[in-house]
Nucleic acid binder design. Structure first.
Lengths: 108, 108
DNA sequence: GCCGATTTCTGCTACATTGTATAAATCACG
DNA sequence: CGTGATTTATACAATGTAGCAGAAATCGGC
């Protein structure tokens, strides 16, 4: 593996996988906040999405405006093959690091 | 969660758990290299161990010299309660992020 | 036993990348 | 317009990483 993912980048990619068609700034933040319990600024999310896109791990398209008042057009993101491969590798590496340790981790 | 662990810091803590009594610079590197498949410089390991210790997540003691060739005295590291708690939280957060996604991740 | 060669291990320094907050700009709709 | 949803810009802190210097220990020859 040549490339590596930072901690937060990793979380963002996982959020994209789970969110599927509805992945953009706000939902990505919600998803990560809800599951990790940590508080995240939107700026952090956008910066990271942008960086991941520059590296060709993800790509965006512009969504349709919604019927709500306000509601600027969203940038919807999805995983690209390069990012998918890296995410899979990173997840596997994590699995190998924790293999046989999960019970112990819980009782730390 | 107020504090967070970086990607590499996380790997280092996991290595400490697995290595138990025999965790020092070289073995930590070996462990991470073997399981993640990535190449790691010793300097990276030492710097990270040092930072983790400053934050009171880990602590070291000086080991006895061994009979091996070379074999300078080792700094043996072990997890402190603060680090253990953070590691557990981080691991749980990751579990929640990947819950129900593992199969999908494998076929990305 | 002393001495240099050799090996293991640690410390330091410097720089690149990633993480994060805050404030400002845009856009879509009524 | 004015208002709310969303994105962009900016700046700085924290983390990741390489490279090299140096200290401590053993080994073999003399």
């Amino acid at each position: 593996m040549t490339e590596t993912l930072g901690d937060f980048e990793h979380l963002v990619l996982l959020a994209l996988v789970r969110l599927g068609d509805d992945a953009y700034g706000m939902t990505v933040r919600q998803e990560i906040e809800a599951r990790t319990g940590r508080t995240i600024s939107l700026g952090a999310v956008y910066t990271t999405l942008d960086r991941l896109e520059r590296k060709a791990f993800i790509r965006h398209r512009i969504g349709q405006p919604t019927a709500e008042r306000g509601g600027r057009r969203k940038k919807l993101y999805r995983l690209e093959p390069l990012g998918a491969r890296l995410l899979r590798e990173t997840s596997r590496a994590y699995e190998r690091m924790t293999a046989g340790l999960k019970k112990r981790l819980e009782t730390l």
